[in-house]
């Protein structure tokens, strides 16, 4: 791990009314690595990503990207940091009103990285990287299967060649074969881009496929972090229970917050 992590989070708190979702979360993500945050539904995994992206405002704590503090920073600083991050949303979050190619090239157009007349070609080129042909470019997102939507979402995330990629439950709702295809694409695209990846999931197959390091989120804090190779002998009761899918253990189902990711 390099001395300055690409992403450094300290003491992160986020409340929604009386619900205290993140309770002093600490996390380091090393440059060039692939870190996966695991945890049950409702433990605040998606909230963590949205806090980093500036979509949600944390109540307390520190989030640094390449040593640059984002909490309390000027909007331009947050926007600049956000522009270096690509995000694949759980449901794809493709824009219904736009054809696939405009979805893919949306970020590049917004950041003026490409002229509108060249945007379609860029989108087709990026779609090819996720295994989709040019015939998909003019389709509407509603015409795509779940797996294709994930691929288009991935193409949109990588189109601007971001330095960091976030994946929110990338394999949720997919059949095992398509899940494996998406996992493979994630590993491949992250490697080719040389990007730093931060994923959240509770799909252990996906974790083992895409992670270098794993962090376990429970009760608003990271209760264990280590290399993926140590996952099966972590010595942590929370991790053991989660990885083995046991109903009995220190994880209180329904107490730590079961709801949206």
């Amino acid at each position: 791990m390099s001395e300055t992590p690409r992403l450094r989070i300290r003491g992160l708190h986020k409340r929604f009314g009386v619900k205290h979702v993140l309770r002093g979360l600490d996390l380091n993500v090393a440059a060039g690595g692939s870190t996966v945050v695991i945890g049950g539904s409702g433990t605040g995994k998606s909230v963590l990503l949205k806090c980093i992206l500036g979509i949600l405002q944390p109540d307390e704590g520190s989030i640094q990207v390449d040593g640059q503090e984002l909490i309390g920073a000027a909007p331009a600083v947050v926007a600049e940091a956000r522009a270096r991050i690509g995000m694949l949303f759980q449901g794809g979050a493709l824009f219904d009103s736009l054809p696939v190619w405009e979805n893919v090239a949306f970020g590049a157009l917004a950041r003026r990285q490409v002229e509108r007349r060249n945007a379609r070609a860029l989108a087709v080129e990026t779609l090819a990287k996720v295994g989709l042909g040019p015939e998909v470019a003019d389709l509407s997102p509603a015409e795509l299967s779940g797996g294709m939507q994930k691929r288009v979402g991935l193409a949109r995330a990588i189109c601007t060649r971001p330095e960091m990629l976030f994946f929110d439950e990338p394999t949720t709702g997919l059949d095992p074969i398509m899940a494996e295809v998406i996992n493979e694409l994630i590993v491949d695209t992250v490697r080719k881009l040389g990007a730093t990846a931060l994923s959240i999931t509770h799909d252990m197959g996906s974790v083992r496929r895409i992670a270098d390091r794993v962090a376990m989120l429970y009760d608003g804090r990271i209760v264990w972090a280590g290399p993926v190779a140590d996952l099966d002998h972590s010595g942590n009761d929370f991790v053991d229970q989660f990885v083995n899918g046991r109903a009995v253990g220190p994880i209180r189902v329904g107490a730590a917050g079961i709801g949206s990711g």
């Binding site: 690509g86 970020g107 917004a110 949109r156």
Partner: peptide
């Protein structure tokens, strides 16, 4: 209905991540 659907399907969050 359109903007509400965009909200609940995270399309509005996606706009934000795409510098819009």
């Amino acid at each position: 209905a359109e903007i509400g659907t965009m909200r609940v399907t995270e399309q509005i969050d996606a706009l934000t991540t795409l510098s819009t």
